[in-house]
């Protein structure tokens, strides 16, 4: 087996330690920035939904403020956004390189995208359902958690999957500015040193990560349509 690996992907074998560290770095960045971006993005998405015109807590100022910020952030290519954010990142976490330095730009790059997706998803919850809940004396918090979020769970899982996959792409890009991870590894140890096998293996590993995320997302989304996951029977 080892002989075979040495023959087919010699450079990966030579740099195997770096390869494993960088794979783990990618996963670490993915999990940390993913969780933070999910929470903030969900919050912003909900805020957009309820403050927009006709929303349950209409507020023009908050809505337009968020709307403009999101539009600006989304129109900046990520690679430029990272560089643009370097001074702020330094102030915030003390460094602009490595995993620590990558988290902040990754979150900033993901939140607007995710918030928009959440907004679109929640917009699909019909006004009728909200109206019915209001007629039963439901509060604003109740409307958000018991109607909006609950009804949209399968869709939210779907857009979370999409966002997670695009986050994997952003992490690879962050590698270009010294964040580490598979993107970095593929660039510096692969492309720069003409080790094609390293680039190929990095592509395969990223592909596998994406496939796993997609599979988990699809499964959860399907299972939650009728709450099969948490179903309780009442007799």
């Amino acid at each position: 087996m080892v002989e075979w690996i040495k023959k087919v992907i010699p450079n990966v074998y030579i740099y195997r330690k770096d390869f494993i560290t960088n794979t783990l770095a990618t996963l670490e960045m993915f999990i940390i920035s993913g969780i933070i971006a999910f929470i903030i993005g969900l919050f912003v998405g909900i805020l957009l939904t309820i403050t927009k015109k006709g929303g349950i807590k209409q507020n023009r100022i908050i809505f337009h403020f968020l709307d403009i910020i999101i539009n600006i952030l989304r129109s900046i290519p990520f690679i430029i956004l990272i560089i643009f954010l370097i001074p702020i990142t330094r102030k915030l976490v003390g460094t602009a390189i490595g995993i620590t330095g990558a988290i902040f730009p990754l979150v900033v790059g993901t939140v607007p995208f995710f918030a928009r997706q959440v907004e679109t998803t929640l917009a699909n919850v019909s006004d009728g359902k909200l109206e019915a809940a209001r007629s039963m004396g439901c509060s604003t918090i109740g409307l958000i958690f018991r109607v909006y979020l609950k009804e949209a769970v399968p869709e939210l899982i779907r857009v979370t999957t999409i966002t997670a996959i695009s986050l994997i792409g952003l992490i690879a890009m962050a590698g270009a500015v010294g964040a580490g991870g598979l993107g970095d590894f593929a660039m510096s140890n692969g492309y720069a040193m003409h080790h094609t096998d390293i680039v190929n293996v990095c592509v395969i590993v990223l592909l596998i990560i994406v496939c796993i995320i997609q599979a988990i997302g699809s499964l959860l989304s399907k299972k939650t349509v009728n709450r099969e996951l948490f179903r309780k029977k009442v007799l």
Partner: peptide, 25 residues
């Protein structure tokens, strides 16, 4: 808002398109 929510519990409402929550039994 609070009083209104209490009062609404005393006024039921049904709709043309039922407006049931689809993910609840």
């Amino acid at each position: 808002e609070k009083e209104l929510r209490k009062t609404r519990k005393n006024i039921g409402m049904i709709f043309q398109h039922f407006n049931l929550l689809e993910r609840l039994t």
